[in-house]
């Protein structure tokens, strides 16, 4: 599993309410996607491309535990989200819906908005192609990599419940 693209950089403690505004959660995806993270960076929903990489500070995705915030990020088609740390519900939801996520303490000092990054999800190797620097994310637990490879939790639910 690889991702390569432009880095979109965000700050600390971004709540799900700013990923998907709470008055939009029942709207159709195209409308939700027009507003993803817009109060953090109005350019993001307009210009994000498939494969781009979101880099955030500490505790990304705090607030609501609803998977809709993770699903919205997945539907923007970003290739990976890398943060100093995640809110645990966002982290969990990410793997459960098949959105690649890496935790990499120190990342925000090493990349700038607009840099080109390439990422290997399994090994956690992150290369900043703009600066030539290489970083290593925290290893992802094998159980979660397995889930990601299966395409998410629902695809492996009977195996997980011991009823495959």
């Amino acid at each position: 599993m690889q991702a390569r693209g432009r880095c979109w950089k965000f700050g600390d403690n971004i709540p799900t309410d700013r990923i998907v505004r709470s008055d939009l959660i029942f709207r159709p995806w195209p409308e939700i996607l027009q507003h993803v993270l817009e109060t953090c960076n109005p350019e993001f929903p307009k210009k994000v491309q498939a494969g781009d990489i979101v880099v955030a500070g500490k505790h990304f995705g705090q607030s609501s535990g609803r998977a809709i915030a993770a699903k919205a990020m997945k539907n923007t088609k970003v290739g990976c989200i890398i943060a100093e740390s995640f809110a645990r519900t966002f982290y969990r939801n990410g793997f459960e819906i098949g959105m690649p996520i890496l935790e990499c303490p120190g990342i925000t000092d090493q990349v700038s908005d607009g840099d080109v990054l390439s990422v290997d999800i399994e090994s956690g190797t992150i290369v900043n192609e703009t600066t030539g620097r290489e970083l290593k994310a925290k290893p992802t637990p094998p159980f979660l990599l397995d889930m990601l490879k299966a395409g998410g939790l629902i695809a492996m639910a009977d195996r997980l419940a011991g009823e495959a």
Binding site: N93, E96, I97, G152, L153, I154, A157
Partner: peptide, 12 residues
């Protein structure tokens, strides 16, 4: 999240 509820809690 929703997928845990729907995917493993409700059916299993």
């Amino acid at each position: 999240g929703n997928d845990s509820h729907a995917g493993t809690v409700m059916p299993f």
